[in-house]
Amino acid sequence: MELLYTGKTKDVFKQEDGLYVLKFKDDVTGENGVFDPGANTVGLTIDGAGLAGLRLTSFFYSKLNEQGVPTHYVDANFDEATMTVKPATVFGKGLEVICRFKAVGSFLRRYGAYVEEGQELDSFVEVTIKDDDRLDPPISADALDMLGILTLEEYAILKQRTIEISKFVGAELAKKGLTLYDIKLEFGRDAKTNEILLIDEISGGNMRAYKGEQYIEPLELEKIMLAE
């Protein structure tokens, strides 16, 4: 396989058949040794985090594929901690889409004058640009359209799918007595059909889940969700 890209939490390879392989690492995003799914730097390394993230990602993607939700997921190899995916192009240089059900994290830091911690949010969707140097700034639909990153029509699809997928993940967590506070998703275009696809991972590393008032760490989340 050809190494195409070395990322913060995953490396990307290309196979001879044109499919791509994501190799999950044990590095997670955060700051000062504290995990934060919204951070744009690697904050710490957690043994087993890569495989845990892959297992949970495979769990969610398999269910989404069964429901006909467009994703890049093909299959996973737990022994190698890898996931095979269809080729996709990103919007611009990459976007992250966050769906928020509770006011925590960066949302609370920015808008704390208007909300209280943990306050209910109505599936609030915000988009940020992947740009480490500029601390992943939020961007509006109009700006995305004006800058040629995606059209207003594409944004509408992005927003609708983000809410639908996030509510699905939240419902799966609720079956285990957990509450989803927020989740970070990524989308791209299918390299062949140009269809908007869900890409990257769906794991404890890109969401905040709580049991009552207790935050559930990514490794613990995987154990709870995949327990028989």
Rank of each mutant, 00 (worst) to 15 (best):
E2A: 15
E2R: 15
L3R: 04
Y5E: 10
G7P: 05
K8C: 07
K10V: 07
V12T: 07
K14R: 15
K14A: 15
D17F: 09
G18C: 11
G18E: 07
G18F: 11
L19E: 12
V21K: 01
L22P: 04
L22W: 09
V34K: 04
F35W: 09
G38N: 11
A39K: 05
T41K: 12
V42K: 00
G43P: 02
L44F: 07
L44N: 04
A49V: 09
A49E: 09
L51Y: 08
L51A: 11
A52Q: 01
A52N: 02
R55E: 14
L56K: 05
T57R: 08
T57Q: 10
F59E: 00
F60G: 06
F60M: 07
Y61E: 05
S62C: 10
E66W: 05
E66I: 09
E66L: 14
Q67M: 15
G68A: 00
V69Y: 13
H72V: 13
D75H: 11
N77M: 06
E80A: 15
A81V: 11
A81K: 07
K86H: 14
K86C: 13
P87Q: 02
P87K: 02
L95F: 05
V97N: 00
F101T: 10
F101P: 10
A103C: 08
V104C: 12
S106L: 10
S106N: 12
S106P: 08
F107H: 13
L108P: 02
R109Y: 06
Y111Q: 04
Y111G: 04
G112H: 01
A113G: 10
A113S: 12
Y114T: 04
E116A: 11
G118Q: 04
L121F: 07
L121D: 05
D122G: 04
V125I: 15
V125T: 07
E126K: 03
V127H: 01
V127A: 03
V127C: 03
T128W: 05
R134P: 00
R134L: 13
I139V: 15
D142F: 13
A143M: 14
L144Y: 06
L144T: 09
L147F: 10
L147N: 06
G148V: 11
L150P: 00
E153A: 14
E154W: 06
A156K: 13
A156D: 14
I157K: 08
Q160L: 09
T162K: 03
K167V: 14
E172G: 10
L173M: 15
L173G: 11
G177Y: 08
G177N: 05
G177L: 08
G177T: 07
Y181N: 09
Y181M: 09
Y181S: 14
D182E: 14
K184S: 14
E186T: 02
G188D: 02
G188Q: 02
A191C: 05
K192R: 12
T193A: 00
T193F: 00
T193P: 00
E195C: 02
L197I: 13
E201C: 04
E201S: 08
S203G: 03
G204W: 09
M207F: 08
M207N: 06
Y210M: 13
E213V: 10
Q214E: 15
Q214P: 04
Q214H: 12
I216N: 00
L219P: 02
E220F: 12
E222G: 12
I224Q: 03
L226P: 02
A227S: 15
E228Y: 04
